[in-house]
C-alpha cells in the first residue's frame, strides 16, 4: 500500500438495519484513480456497505473518511456534495420523469446553472441514446438505457468517487460490455470507482484491486490478478467461505 492518503477509507465499520447487522467491522481503502471491486454472494452485505458510505444507512461503529475528513453521520445530500455518488442497485431511475429531468435531478446539489446545462449536453454526447430520448419518460427506456441514465445522473453531481451497485444486473452481455467499457474510462475523467458486482470476471477485468465479502465481513483482499487466481473464490460465491452463509436473496443486502 502506498503512503498517499486514500480517497475513501473505512475503518472498522459496522452497519445494518435495526437489530440486523449487515456489515461487520469492515475496513477498506480506495485510492484516488482506482477502480476497486467489491465481490461477494447475495446477502453478503455489499449493498449495505455502499449505502453506509452514501449516508443512507448509519453505521453503528467505525469511521468513514473521504479524503481525510469524516463523512459518517453526515446527511446523504452533504455526502453527495462532497463528491460521492451512489448508483443504486436496480438503477433507481425516476420512471415518470423525462430523461432530461432525471439528469437535472442528478445535479441537485450543484448551484452553477450554466455549467449544469453544459454537463447535461456532455452526457448526451457520452450516451447518445439519452440525447435522442431526452424528452421521453425514463420508464420507457430499455434496461441498458436506464443503466446508462443512472450512470449519467450520478456523473451530473460531478463526483470524485462513484459507488456502483451491480451495473450489469439483468442486462444483455453486449450491453454489459458497452457499459463496462465506459466504466473503465471513468478514472480518466477523475472519477474513482468502488464497484459492487456479481460478475467476478467482468469486475476484475476493469478493477485494479478487490475485496471479497461474505457473511457481512470482508474476508479477502488483493490485486485483481491475485483474486482471480484465488482458489476459493468460487466457494465464496457458493456461500461456504463464511461460518453462517445467508441464503441467496434478490435484495443483495
Amino acid at each position: 500500500m502506498s503512503e498517499e492518503r486514500p480517497l475513501l477509507r473505512l475503518d472498522g465499520v459496522t452497519s445494518g438495519y435495526g437489530p440486523i447487522v449487515a456489515v461487520r467491522d469492515a475496513s477498506l481503502e480506495v485510492r484516488s484513480g482506482e477502480i476497486v471491486a467489491l465481490l461477494g454472494a447475495n446477502g453478503a452485505g455489499k449493498s449495505t456497505l455502499l449505502m453506509t458510505v452514501a449516508g443512507l444507512v448509519r453505521p453503528t461503529a467505525g469511521n468513514i473518511e473521504l479524503d481525510g475528513s469524516r463523512i459518517d453521520g453526515l446527511k446523504p445530500e452533504e455526502i453527495v456534495r462532497r463528491g460521492v455518488a451512489l448508483t443504486p442497485e436496480g438503477r433507481g431511475i425516476f420512471s415518470h420523469l423525462t430523461v432530461a429531468d432525471n439528469l437535472r435531478i442528478g445535479a441537485a446539489v450543484r448551484k452553477d446553472r450554466a455549467q449544469i446545462a453544459t454537463d447535461a449536453e456532455e452526457m448526451c454526447t457520452l450516451f447518445p441514446i439519452l440525447g435522442e430520448r431526452r424528452r421521453q419518460l425514463a420508464g420507457t427506456l430499455s434496461g441498458g438505457e436506464q443503466q446508462m441514465l443512472a450512470l449519467a445522473r450520478s456523473l451530473m453531481s460531478r463526483p470524485r468517487l462513484m459507488l456502483l451497485d451491480e451495473p450489469s444486473l439483468g442486462l444483455a452481455p453486449r450491453i454489459v460490455a458497452q457499459i463496462f467499457e465506459m466504466l473503465r474510462k471513468l478514472p480518466e475523467r477523475g472519477v474513482t470507482v468502488l464497484l459492487v458486482e456479481q460478475n467476478v470476471s467482468l469486475a476484475l477485468d476493469i478493477a485494479q484491486r478487490g475485496y471479497v465479502m461474505a457473511s457481512s465481513e470482508l474476508q479477502l483482499s488483493g490485486t485483481a490478478a491475485e483474486l482471480r487466481s484465488a482458489v476459493d473464490l468460487e466457494q465464496v460465491y457458493l456461500g461456504s467461505a463464511g461460518d453462517a452463509p445467508e441464503p441467496a436473496a434478490t435484495g443483495g443486502r
Binding site: 453527495v80 443504486p88 425516476f94 435531478i105
Partner: peptide
C-alpha cells in the same frame, strides 16, 4: 420548478432521490 421536480423524484424512488442529493 426545481423543488417540484425533486419532490417528484422522491415520489418515484425516495431512496434513490436521497442518494442523488435531494433533501
Amino acid at each position: 420548478s426545481r423543488v417540484g421536480l425533486r419532490l417528484q423524484a422522491s415520489r418515484e424512488d425516495p431512496l434513490s432521490a436521497e442518494s442523488t442529493g435531494v433533501s
